[in-house]
Amino acid sequence: MDVHVRELRYFVAVAEELSFTRAAKNRLFVSQPALSKQIRQLESMLKATLLERDRRTVTLTPAGRALLPRARQIVERWDAAARAVAEVVATHQMTLTVGFHTRIGRGLIPRVTARLDEVMPGWRLQFRQVSWGDPTVGLAGGDVDVAIAWLPVPDDGTLSWRVVSTEERWVALAVGHRLADAGTVPFDDLVDEPFIALPSAAGSRRDFWLAAEQRRTPPRVAAEADTAEETFEAVASGLGVVLLSAGNAEVYRRDDVVCLPVSGIPPSQLAVVWRTGDHRETVRVFVEACLRTLGTEVEG
């Protein structure tokens, strides 16, 4: 059986972090059991122990040290090959694929499309909704060329971004919720509520939308949802509440959900995101059009 690039990618992450926990949460955005399973499969196929681990430490074995530079090279070459193929296909089809987790709205796409028609006639935009479980919004796998995404995104140097909108965080509640008739809801009134969470693979973005940094105790997670549509169905059923941006409170307006502003937590940031080092003219035009439409703030 041949080794898959994914298994080598997982091995490189653990070898560089010397921690299954950090590699799973900060680099790979997968569960730790899933990561451990992939490493065991790799060791089984190679018939060698690559990592020595106990409860506190992870160290490379001689076999692991021999594999690491070669695994890095294979992963880097594969990523470069995938990007090259995606760029050729996009250029041939004159299509720029835009990834998103939640509906974009805000009048952004019509204006960006008009700008693209003006500067690069013949090109068109194609849109692809990506599960919350992919924190790179399809960019890491080469499924999309650019993305409109809520920060944070993985800050490992592979992605660049510019903030296009800063919006206060609101809360979505079922119509019959005890706070549904309130005006502005202090976050302290929500800390004991059951929340609908992004999947664990969403990493730091899951923590942000649970307002983990503003809590003294861990949140009560009633359920996880892979998409915004799943989230609002869960909220409408009374299963839990969820934080969302002020703009999305309008975009996802429903008769069975009430959205209210929340005080006591910092705002959210919507960004245009692309792969670092992708200098294609279409990507540059798209980014500049987003900034021109909604305004520029922070560069990542």
Results as ranks from 00 to 15, higher is better:
3 V>L: 15
4 H>S: 14
6 R>K: 12
11 F>V: 12
14 V>F: 04
22 R>M: 03
26 N>D: 13
27 R>M: 12
29 F>I: 00
31 S>G: 14
31 S>V: 00
33 P>K: 04
36 S>E: 15
38 Q>F: 10
39 I>T: 10
43 E>M: 10
43 E>S: 05
48 A>Q: 15
49 T>M: 12
50 L>H: 09
55 R>D: 04
56 R>V: 05
56 R>W: 07
58 V>E: 06
61 T>Q: 03
63 A>I: 02
65 R>T: 12
68 L>A: 05
68 L>M: 05
72 R>K: 15
76 E>T: 04
80 A>C: 02
80 A>L: 10
81 A>H: 12
82 A>V: 14
82 A>L: 11
85 V>A: 13
92 H>T: 15
92 H>E: 15
95 T>N: 01
95 T>H: 08
95 T>P: 03
96 L>A: 02
103 R>C: 02
104 I>S: 05
106 R>D: 03
107 G>E: 09
111 R>V: 02
113 T>N: 11
114 A>C: 07
114 A>F: 00
115 R>I: 00
119 V>T: 13
120 M>P: 01
125 L>K: 01
127 F>T: 09
128 R>A: 10
128 R>H: 10
129 Q>C: 06
129 Q>P: 15
133 G>I: 00
137 V>T: 14
137 V>D: 10
141 G>W: 10
141 G>F: 08
142 G>P: 06
143 D>Y: 00
149 A>D: 03
161 W>G: 09
164 V>I: 15
168 E>H: 11
174 A>N: 11
174 A>W: 08
175 V>N: 04
179 L>T: 10
180 A>H: 01
181 D>K: 11
184 T>N: 07
186 P>W: 08
186 P>A: 09
193 E>S: 03
197 A>E: 04
200 S>D: 08
203 G>P: 01
203 G>W: 01
206 R>G: 03
211 A>T: 03
211 A>H: 03
211 A>S: 13
215 R>I: 04
215 R>C: 07
215 R>E: 14
221 V>N: 05
227 T>Q: 08
229 E>M: 00
230 E>W: 06
233 E>A: 06
235 V>Y: 07
238 G>H: 09
241 V>E: 06
242 V>K: 03
244 L>Y: 01
245 S>K: 00
247 G>T: 08
247 G>V: 06
250 E>W: 00
251 V>Y: 05
259 C>F: 01
259 C>R: 02
263 S>H: 02
263 S>V: 00
265 I>A: 05
267 P>L: 08
268 S>W: 00
268 S>N: 11
270 L>I: 08
277 G>R: 04
280 R>A: 10
285 V>T: 13
288 E>T: 11
289 A>L: 08
291 L>F: 01
292 R>G: 09
293 T>Y: 04
